[in-house]
Computed example of a mutant assay.
Amino acid sequence: MKRPVFFCKSWFRAKKRPTEVWTEAQAKAAHGRKQYYTALLDSTERPYCFLEVTEKAVGVSFLDDHLRESLSYAFQEVEPDRLFLTMATYREFEKKSDRVVSGTSYIFGRNGEVQIRREHFNPHSVEVANTTADVVHNYTDFPKFGEYDDLIRVERG
């Protein structure tokens, strides 16, 4: 089943709401001009996730029940109309607050190298590990307007 898509200028993270809700025509025009816009999946008030689409990158942020960014993906254009997932970040929060207690980032190289960075905030500590992975599933096509299904897959491989 296709998820409903809504559009806006941006997602205001601190206030957990869209700024300047746009019509589909406004967002489609921005997409065609390769200008920044945001797509909200499922709802404008309680989206499952939002995508920040730019000329050469797409950011995907998955929201939890408290509208906090629990998981985010950063896709960068690596060749014309081809994106590569360069980073995935998981965040853990203090109970129902917006305070991040820890985060783990996976930074992917196109050669299969992966840096895993775990950060705890109280007390502050950082652990870094390096490994390798098959990154074939990190590639995707730059989305056609309104077609975001491949980018919003939580499980990539």
Rank of each mutant, 00 (worst) to 15 (best):
G32E: 09
V154G: 03
D64T: 10
F12K: 09
Y36C: 10
R156E: 11
L40Q: 08
S43F: 03
N130H: 04
F62G: 00
Q76Y: 09
N130I: 06
G32T: 12
A25R: 06
R99Q: 13
V128M: 13
R82K: 12
G32A: 10
K34E: 07
R99E: 11
L67M: 15
R91W: 10
A39G: 03
S105V: 13
R68L: 01
C8L: 02
R99W: 14
G103E: 15
S125C: 01
W22L: 11
T131I: 04
L151G: 05
L85M: 11
E55V: 04
R46D: 07
R99N: 03
T132H: 08
G32Q: 01
R117K: 15
K144N: 13
F75P: 10
R110T: 11
D65H: 12
Y48T: 15
S97I: 11
H137S: 11
R117V: 15
P47S: 13
T44N: 02
V128L: 14
F75K: 05
V135P: 04
V135L: 08
D98F: 08
P47E: 01
H137V: 00
A88T: 14
L151P: 12
L83C: 03
L40F: 00
L85H: 05
F93M: 13
E24H: 15
S125W: 05
E79N: 12
R17G: 00
Y37H: 04
W11H: 07
E77P: 13
D64P: 07
R17S: 06
F93G: 00
R3Q: 12
T23S: 15
F93D: 03
D42K: 08
V21A: 08
K95N: 08
E155Y: 14
A30P: 04
V101N: 07
Q115K: 15
V114Y: 07
Y73T: 06
E79Q: 09
M87V: 08
R68S: 08
R118N: 04
H66E: 12
F6T: 04
C8A: 15
L151F: 08
T54I: 01
R110S: 07
V154N: 02
V5F: 02
F84N: 12
L83R: 01
D141R: 14
E45L: 01
V60L: 14
R91A: 07
E127N: 08
R99T: 10
K2R: 02
S70Y: 07
F121Q: 02
D150K: 09
M1H: 07
V135K: 11
